[in-house]
């Protein structure tokens, strides 16, 4: 394509699309036509929809079945609107990879935080992590755009600043994951001001025999909170060193500051 000297000079190299790519066979065609000579690393050498390995070693795992299929709930994971728990926690929480961060990285970048949809300013001047609610749900809960809300379940609660929007359907709540932790009450059943909703997501993995997170959708309830009353109740936690444009300062977490 180009020499290294040319690459060093231009600092980029666009790999050209292959000539005649339209005539390329679909992916895995060569394997499909002669799979015996180039087997997969599965016990059968084929792409397995029925997993022979699971059938041999974990034939009775109810949440990692031999043939993959939808499982509404299990003994460990009850996070669907159809579950009994939904009576107390009637919203399905969606926690996407954040739009204005990479997980919790860049949550302190001033130029990103001042983008209108990045944070919601509370009455205490704190920049809360947005929580999206449909206008129908917001109306039922008596929540207005800009209110500080608690998103909670039996595992704990996180605060957020409400954005009432048509971009989320009724029955669902949306808050990005990765906002930096700013705990008011620590531990199970705690309260986090930063909106780090990983603190209230399910602990169980998809199966007791494997590690696979099932944390992007889970049951919660939402309520409006009086953040000024909370500040009176927890003065120490609300007085950590903080700059609205950058968030909680590192010194807040260091003994004796600085």
């Amino acid at each position: 394509m180009m020499t290294y000297e040319e690459f060093a000079e231009k600092k980029m190299c666009l790999a050209p699309t292959a000539e005649g790519w339209e005539d390329d066979p679909v992916a895995l065609t060569a394997w499909y036509e002669n799979w015996e000579d180039q087997p997969m690393q599965t016990p059968t050498g084929k792409i397995e929809i029925y997993s022979t390995g699971l059938a041999e070693w974990f034939p009775d795992d109810p949440t990692r079945p031999v043939v993959p299929h939808w499982i509404e709930e299990s003994d460990e994971l009850k996070e669907r609107l159809s579950c009994e728990r939904a009576k107390d926690f009637p919203f399905l929480m969606v926690t996407n990879h954040p739009r204005w961060r990479v997980h919790s990285e860049h949550d302190d970048v001033t130029w990103l935080r001042e983008i209108e949809t990045c944070k919601v300013k509370g009455p205490d001047g704190y920049m809360y992590e947005p929580v999206w609610l449909n206008p129908i749900d917001a109306g039922k809960l008596g929540i207005a755009n800009g209110d500080v809300v608690a998103v909670y379940n039996e595992r704990g609660a996180v605060l957020g600043g409400c954005i009432v929007t048509e971009r989320i359907m009724p029955g669902s709540v949306y808050q990005d994951h990765g906002a930096r932790v700013d705990s008011i009450v620590r531990g199970t059943g705690g309260l986090d001001r930063g909106g780090a909703n990983n603190l209230i997501c399910p602990l169980a993995t998809a199966s007791k025999n494997t590690l696979s997170e099932a944390t992007n959708g889970f049951l919660v309830n939402v309520k409006k909170v009086d953040v000024l009353a909370l500040a009176e109740q927890y003065p120490e936690e609300f007085e950590r060193e903080y700059k609205p444009e950058a968030g909680l300062q590192v010194s807040a977490w260091i003994v004796d500051g600085e």
């Binding site: 983008i115 209108e116 949809t117 449909n134 929007t165 048509e166 971009r167 989320i168 359907m169 009724p170």
Partner: peptide
């Protein structure tokens, strides 16, 4: 950059 949300769920344009 300004953002404007138009319409009603699920028929929405941004």
């Amino acid at each position: 950059v300004d953002e404007e949300v138009c319409g009603k769920t699920p028929l929405v344009r941004v």
